[in-house]
């Protein structure tokens, strides 16, 4: 049976969030699995390593993503694929908040537009501070 009907704009937003979340995790999964398979092929096993090259580090969330995307981060292909998978995973909830803000703005739902923009600002500050 179909779920109960809601106002059109709300349904569209919920569908868009749902597709964004599943798209994000599936892309992440593909990148992680591809990275693990290549890692296994190169190293002959997939054991947890304590080598410094397998640790990722960034001054803050956004500069970390910038470094990885512009090729200044991890160099080996398997670890690069895994890093990209983790980036996609981390970005998914962040983009979800942006998407909600866009939908609430388009729907002229000012109460929720303000709430979502507040959440986005606080989240961005917390990600920039560390």
């Amino acid at each position: 049976m179909k779920p109960p009907q809601k106002p059109d704009g709300q349904s569209k937003m919920e569908n868009a969030i749902s597709y964004l979340l599943i798209g994000g995790v599936l892309l992440c999964l593909v990148l992680l699995v591809a990275g693990m398979v290549l890692f296994w092929h190169q190293q002959g096993g997939v054991s947890v390593s304590q080598d410094q090259s397998v640790f990722v580090r960034g001054h803050d969330f956004f500069s970390f993503i910038y470094d990885q995307v512009t090729g200044r981060g991890v160099q080996s292909l398997p670890l690069r694929l895994i890093t990209l998978g983790v980036i996609v995973l981390l970005l998914t909830p962040y983009v979800r908040v942006i998407l909600s803000a866009v939908f609430f703005t388009r729907e002229k739902n000012f109460k929720y537009m303000m709430i979502t923009i507040f959440v986005l600002i606080i989240l961005t500050i917390s990600l920039t501070l560390h």
């Binding site: 580090r57 670890l79 998978g85």
Partner: peptide, 29 residues
């Protein structure tokens, strides 16, 4: 979203191990 804010702290501290995160993230997904 709460976890995302926490991950950012660990990213700064250099505690994110790719060989550990990959199977964990893939499995939980």
């Amino acid at each position: 979203m709460t976890a995302l804010a926490a991950v950012s702290v660990y990213l700064f501290s250099g505690l994110l191990n790719l060989t550990l995160m990959a199977p964990i993230a893939a499995g939980t997904t």
